[in-house]
Structures are given as C-alpha cells and as structure tokens.
Design a binder for these strands. Structure first.
Length: 459
DNA sequence: TTTTGAGTTGTTCGA
DNA sequence: GTCGAACAACTCAAA
C-alpha cells in the first residue's frame, strides 16, 4: 500500500465538492488522511457561538468521513508537519486560504513542510472564483461591485468536484479517536443558550433543498429584504465553515430562471467581492479601506454602546436585531445594515467596535463580509457614500417589517402593541407600559450631527 | 490621456 | 399618499 496524502481541512468541512480531496487522492494513489487542526490562536478569538458551531460542524465532518477525520490541537506549524510525518504523507493538500491570517499561517506551515521534504499543495478556495483572479483588463482589482459582478460572471467557475473513485481514508487509532471526540465535546457548549442551525454538509444540503422546495428561491428577490419572513436561505454559517461550497449552489441555480435565482447569485457574488477586496487589502479588516474619513470625530464606547449591544436603544427595529443576534447568533441582513447605521451615525461610534461585536456573536461571522459590510455603512469602504447612508430606523422598520411582526418576535416589551405601532411606541398611550426603554438619542438630531462631522472631514 | 457615465440596499422636502 | 428632485462631491471603469 502506498503512502497516503494528507488533507488538511480548514474552512471546508465537507466531503462533497472538495477539489483538494481529489488532489490528495491523486497524490496518495487513493489513500488520504484527513486532518483538522484546532489552533488556539484562532479559537480564542472566535467567541462561544462560533466555537460551538465549529465543534458541531466538526462532529458532522467526522461522520462524513466515516470516522476517519483526525483532529489535533496546537500550532499548525508544529502539528501539520508532525502529522505528515506520522502518517508518512509526502504532500499536504488544502483549499487555498485567502484571509490575512490564513495567508501568513499557510506560508509559515508550507515553509516548515518544505524543510522536511513535504509538499504543500493548495487546490481551490472557499469561493467559486478565487480571490485575486477577477481583475480589470489592466490587471488591477475592482473597487466597485457592479463591474466586478460582470467580470466575475464572465470569468466563470468549474462544475462541482466529483469525489474520486476508490478513496481509502486513513483514520485515527481508537485512542486518537477517543481523544478527538472528547476534545470536540469540550468545545461544544451543550448548554449554549443560543439556537444554532443543524451543522454539517448533510444538514446544509437538506436546508438548501427544502428551502427551494418551499419556494424560497422564487420569492427570494423580494422576501430576502424582509426580516419578518423566512425569506433568506440561512446558509451563511454553512458557507462560512465550508459545509457547503458556493459552487454547489451556483450549479443548482443554473437550472433556475427568474429574479430569485438571479438575486441569489448576486448575493453570493457579494461574498466573493468582499473576499477579493480583503485579499488585495489585508488591513481593511480592521481599518478604513479609504482614507477619506481619517480625522473623523468618534465618540467613545460607553453606556450607549452597551445599550446598543443589549438591544435597549429605544428604537424597536434596532433592538429587535440586536436581541436576535444574542439569541440566535444570526441577524437578518437588512437589520444588520440598520443597526450598523445606528451605531455609526446615531451614536457616532467607530465601525470596528460594532464589527468586533458582530464577530463575537455571529455564527456566520466572516471577516471579509463583516468588515466590508460595516465599512459600506460607515462610508469608509467600497462605494463610499456616507451622506446617503444615514438610515432612519423608524422608516426602515415600517418599510421592511410593515406589520411589526419581527419587532414583536424579539422584543417582548412591545408584544402588546398592534401592527406597525410596535415601531412607534411613543405614538400610542400604552407604548411603554411593559417596560420598553425610551429612545436613548433623537434620530433627527443625531443625523444632523453625523452629517456635520462628515462635512468637517470631507472638505 | 481624457472624457463620460455610473455607483446595492436612503432620506427629506416640496409639489 | 405619491412622486421626483436634491442631497455633495468623488472615485471608478471603460470607451
């Protein structure tokens, strides 16, 4: 029997549509030893929701790989070369990582491996089109979305990868498997008071299938903007951890006509665009992509920041979103924009503080999408238009949650109010009888304040 | 090189 | 209530 190739899984916890698996099988003559490394440097920054999601996704991946998945704890620069030596692998196969941390880590691991005569082989990425591959005709990256979208489509992507025939997985020993299962159980907070989706590639594919069967795609173009409806695919956490690949989804969209399928592909393209932006601008994860607002006056995070975090601002749609985040690890995209606008434009707090809170609590917390989504709202990112993006939290609530159902679902103190009055408790005599807090700021005033601060630095 | 049209997701005001 | 214009100026992409 020939020596196996190692398959190091990271943001790709699945077995289907995984090009690196095919590459590993080819290198190992069918024999593959799959590995995941729990890197303390990453885990410590993940927050308990994302750690638990990782644990459950890993437990599902263990099942996908028929129990043959190795899980090791430690610094990948040490663990991966040791693993390669242990199983006798001549090559380590991965999906190419494109985040700033991942790029640095892979370069370091690759170097150590090379010293031991082991090849480090990236195949594919977590994206339909790998970051850096879509460029203008002069080779420069795109900085606005619409032209990127056109070029991204034109570039195209391969069909889903087919699992290689005759695959022979090299799994852990019984002792190692026991240690693995116990490490995963430790990471999985059973008493987590947050309702997470079912983890794993099977659950992801099932959700995708059932959502489409229920007409989700047909209604997507309009319903995706409605937090009061089950209008989104809820696949973001799966895409983040790689229990499903966007290429799989795009292939299924091929047979679908209509605005829903079109809009869904565009949303996937946004994910790819922001990954591309981060690839070209690694520092934009936590600092302004554009220097236009350098010198902008921000307020320190104090009681108002805490009120925002806890969902006690007195603006119903803002509070509903922030409480949905704490309760489920997820927030509807429309509401993410509203609460982000509120933090940056009404409370005048610097966007990275909000982005960090999101990363601490979102199960789908994706560095590229999160940071650039925040920057888009703050006016420092792509398509910077700070003057045009001061959301009115009441108008937005009335428009996208017209019957107040979303607000009542997440804010119990407003459940006694009918219809849209839940968005304006100050307009009804019994609005505050159940303990709902009064507005911590006056939106009209803070809007003027925000525009004034912007004007002061954009001259 | 210069020019031109466009740029996810808004809000407010006044007719 | 509905509609269109104004908002402030800039950067980007492509011809």
């Amino acid at each position: 029997m020939s020596a196996p190739a190692a398959l190091w899984l990271r943001r790709d916890l699945r077995r289907s549509d995984l090009p690196a698996l095919g590459a590993a099988a080819a290198a190992g003559d069918g024999s593959v030893a799959p590995l995941f490394v729990m890197d303390p440097a990453l885990l410590s920054g993940a927050g308990r929701v994302r750690r638990t999601w990782l644990a459950r996704s890993l437990e599902a991946a263990v099942r996908s790989y028929d129990g043959a998945l190795h899980v090791r704890v430690g610094d990948p620069r040490v663990v991966v070369p040791a693993f390669a030596q242990e199983v006798g692998a001549g090559s380590v196969h991965v999906s190419r990582e494109t985040t700033p941390f991942g790029v640095r880590r892979d370069a370091a691991v690759s170097e150590v491996l090379a010293g031991g005569g082991v090849r480090f082989v990236p195949t594919g990425t977590p994206y339909a089109v790998g970051p850096g591959l879509v460029t203008k005709s002069d080779g420069e990256p795109y900085k606005v979305f619409t032209p990127f979208l056109r070029a991204w489509r034109e570039h195209g992507w391969p069909a889903p990868a087919v699992e290689p025939d005759g695959l022979s997985l090299v799994g852990p020993t019984k002792t190692q498997a026991r240690e693995r299962d116990s490490a995963l159980a430790d990471l999985d907070e059973q008493d987590l008071d947050v309702d997470l989706p079912d983890a794993g590639e099977e659950a992801a594919l099932r959700r995708w299938r059932e959502w489409r069967a229920a007409g989700g795609l047909t209604a997507y173009a309009t319903d995706r903007d409605r937090p009061d409806r089950d209008g989104t695919s809820m696949l973001s956490a799966h895409l983040k951890i790689g229990s499903i690949h966007p290429r799989t989804l795009l292939a299924d969209l091929d047979g679908e006509a209509g605005p829903g399928a079109e809009t869904f592909a565009v949303e996937l393209a946004w994910r790819e665009f922001y990954a591309d932006v981060l690839w070209h601008n690694p520092t934009s994860a936590w600092t302004d992509l554009r220097p236009t607002l350098i010198g902008m006056a921000y307020d320190d995070a104090g009681d108002q920041f805490e009120a925002w975090q806890q969902g006690c601002t007195g603006y119903p749609i803002v509070d509903a979103g922030m409480r949905q985040l704490l309760a489920t690890g997820w927030m509807h995209n429309r509401v993410r924009m509203i609460v982000a606008s509120f933090l940056t434009k009404d409370l005048h707090i610097w966007w990275p503080l909000g982005a960090q809170h999101f990363m601490d609590h979102l199960v789908d917390g994706d560095l590229a999408s999160n940071s650039h989504g925040w920057q888009w709202v703050a006016g420092t990112g792509t398509d910077a238009s700070p003057y045009f993006r001061v959301f009115n939290p009441v108008t937005q609530g009335l428009k996208f949650d017209p019957d107040g159902d979303y607000v009542r679902r997440w804010v119990p103190e407003l459940r006694h109010l009918d219809g849209k009055s839940a968005h304006e408790p100050w307009r009804v005599p019994n609005g505050y009888t159940q303990g709902y807090p009064e507005c911590i700021v006056d939106h009209a005033e803070e809007r003027q304040e925000a525009l004034g601060r912007l004007a002061a630095v954009t001259k």
